[in-house]
């Protein structure tokens, strides 16, 4: 893959349009989700990532297929870079064809085949898990990276501190990715942390840490590539604080009483998709028909995903207690197995 600099100069056109496509896929998937939610086609919790797409797209880009991803309940975007839109949407519909047979839903997307380890709805709950996945890799002599995403709200949790300390103490191959969108539900960072410089906290654990413009997909990708390379070559855990913003409400139940519309509007001027599109336009890398085709492709992908989900089936009631425990009958066909 082409080495990409931060956004000062034009990047390789194919690579730029690949990143543009990835971000647009995430955006359109979630716009679809909101629409389907409003139409009561999908239920439960729904936390969208709109505005933060450059983070998932930029960080997952330099990861190898065998690298693990651990994410939060705001993980549709990360999942889409590994799992098909159809399997994700079917999961939200609670259908058997979903990536977790409809058991997980929006907040618990998992996929063993692509090493996607969720989908954790306990703030900071995924960090210790990521440390353990990395521990297994290190003990087995595998040169893999575990990328662990979490919001800046997680920084106040004990599990954040326990995990950073363990990972640094044991020099484990974890890439910690803090998605700092400035709010934890309605609590602004400055209202919850005595020290708001998050990268500094990580540095306090002797972990190399950078703050990155999370709206600039090239900046994210470059920082992630540097960190992933260092982690993979035995450099121990690394930490990225990705400064971003969520354009939509925290969840579908949030009246957004805690922030000014003007603040949201200001951040929307730095929409990561628009930033990239503008820079490609300026560099003559995105002819109008290419942009049209790209949008049409993505729209078609999401429409097909919805169709797949709509056609899905519900798990039979008799299977309700399956997967509380593993099937112990000899030779039983477990849906998937923990594997190295």
């Amino acid at each position: 893959m082409t080495a990409v600099r931060a956004s000062q100069g034009p990047a390789d056109a194919d690579h730029a349009s690949h990143l543009l496509r990835q971000m647009l896929r995430i955006r359109r998937l979630e716009e679809k989700c909101v629409e389907l939610y409003s139409a009561a086609r999908i239920r439960g919790f729904l936390h969208v990532y709109i505005g933060e797409e450059a983070v998932a797209a930029g960080v997952l880009e330099p990861l190898a297929a065998e690298d693990c991803v651990v994410a939060t309940y705001r993980e549709h975007g990360h999942a889409l870079l590994r799992v098909s839109a159809g399997a994700i949407l079917a999961e939200m519909y609670g259908r058997l064809e979903g990536c977790c047979r409809g058991r997980g839903g929006s907040m618990h997307l998992f996929d063993a085949a692509t090493r996607f380890y969720g989908g954790n709805a306990i703030v900071a709950g995924g960090l210790p898990l990521a440390v353990g996945l990395a521990l297994a890799d290190k003990m087995s002599g595998r040169h893999r990276v575990t990328a662990c995403f979490f919001g800046e709200g997680a920084v106040a949790e004990g599990e954040f501190h326990e995990s950073l300390n363990l990972a640094a103490l044991w020099q484990l191959p974890v890439l910690f990715c803090c998605e700092n969108n400035l709010y934890a539900m309605g609590t602004a960072l400055a209202r919850s942390e005595s020290q708001t410089d998050i990268a500094l906290k990580a540095a306090g654990y002797e972990i190399p840490a950078w703050a990155v413009d999370g709206m600039d997909v090239f900046a994210v990708e470059e920082a992630a590539r540097r960190a992933v390379d260092a982690v993979r070559s035995g450099g121990g855990p690394h930490f990225l604080e990705l400064r971003t913003y969520r354009f939509r409400a925290h969840s579908m139940f949030d009246p957004e009483l805690y922030r000014e519309k003007a603040e949201v509007a200001r951040w929307m001027e730095r929409d990561p998709i628009r930033l990239l599109k503008d820079s490609m336009d300026a560099a003559g890398q995105l002819p109008a028909e290419t942009w049209e085709t790209l949008q049409a492709d993505v729209d078609a992908e999401m429409a097909a995903g919805v169709e797949f989900a709509e056609a899905g089936t519900l798990e039979p009631v008799e299977e309700l207690t399956r997967f509380v425990y593993s099937d112990r009958t000899p030779g039983a066909d477990q849906a998937g197995r923990a594997a190295g």
Partner: peptide, 28 residues
């Protein structure tokens, strides 16, 4: 020390790490 591993006082951290290691193919 790799297989008899002293941990810091971080019950949530090392139990979670055990879960992750089990997912990663170990038998902690």
């Amino acid at each position: 020390p790799e297989r008899i591993r002293d941990t810091p006082l971080s019950e949530s951290g090392f139990v979670g790490a055990g879960i992750g290691a089990a997912l990663g193919g170990m038998r902690p």
